[in-house]
């Protein structure tokens, strides 16, 4: 080949090379994306995040544990709220340990009568009964979930997809 031909062919060759590389890249990336994206589930076989837990009359004053979703229902007279029973450190199920006498606790510049505390068996984390973490490696306070009365049958309904702050109360 003459030198002139070589000079003309070089850009064409590298262009073709780049195009081939590009197309192969698209193929490779597509394969990779398919392999990874298919592993991210779109549909889950899990119990619904919003669920009914029975009529308010069936709950005693104090603390009740809903074991399937691991939440604690707290009742004080006609006032209800729902607290998560899952330790915010690494997910172990908390145990509620009642006090023999009510204690005066100050939390976030607010005083209230505390009836007990949550204890985690895994690393000794402790939470006040309103959810604040005060001992152990737990990094965050317990979540509170929205509770409402279902209009159709009057049952208490907990919505774990809706987090509420610790001033929330449902009055029945």
């Amino acid at each position: 080949m003459s030198k002139k031909d070589e000079q003309v062919n070089k850009p064409r060759r590298s262009f073709l090379g780049m195009m081939t590389g590009g197309v192969l890249g698209v193929g490779a990336l597509s394969t990779l994306w398919i392999s990874v994206r298919s592993l991210v589930p779109n549909i889950l076989y899990e119990p619904p995040r919003k669920f009914k837990i029975g009529l308010p009359e069936t709950y005693q004053d104090g603390v009740s544990f809903i074991d399937e979703q691991r939440i604690y229902i707290m009742r004080d007279g006609n006032t209800f709220h729902a607290i998560s029973g899952i330790c915010t450190h690494l997910g172990c199920t908390l145990k509620f340990s009642p006090f023999s006498d009510e204690k005066e606790i100050t939390v976030r510049n607010m005083s209230y009568a505390s009836k007990g505390e949550f204890i985690c068996p895994c690393h000794g984390s402790k939470f006040r009964d309103e959810g604040t973490n005060f001992a152990g490696p737990a990094p965050r306070p317990l979540l509170w979930f929205a509770v409402e009365i279902a209009p159709e049958d009057g049952q208490l309904t907990v919505d774990m997809a809706q987090e509420v702050d610790r001033d929330f109360r449902l009055v029945v």
Binding site: D67, L90, C92, T93, P121, C122, H123, G124, P137, P139
Partner: peptide, 26 residues
């Protein structure tokens, strides 16, 4: 049994060192 965490809940021996540290900060 999701409703009950065994007490104590310990990892196998080669991860126990890690579990000790994780107990301070995850």
């Amino acid at each position: 049994n999701p409703r009950v965490t065994p007490n104590p809940a310990k990892a196998p021996w080669y991860f126990l060192g890690l579990q000790e540290l994780v107990g301070y900060s995850a």
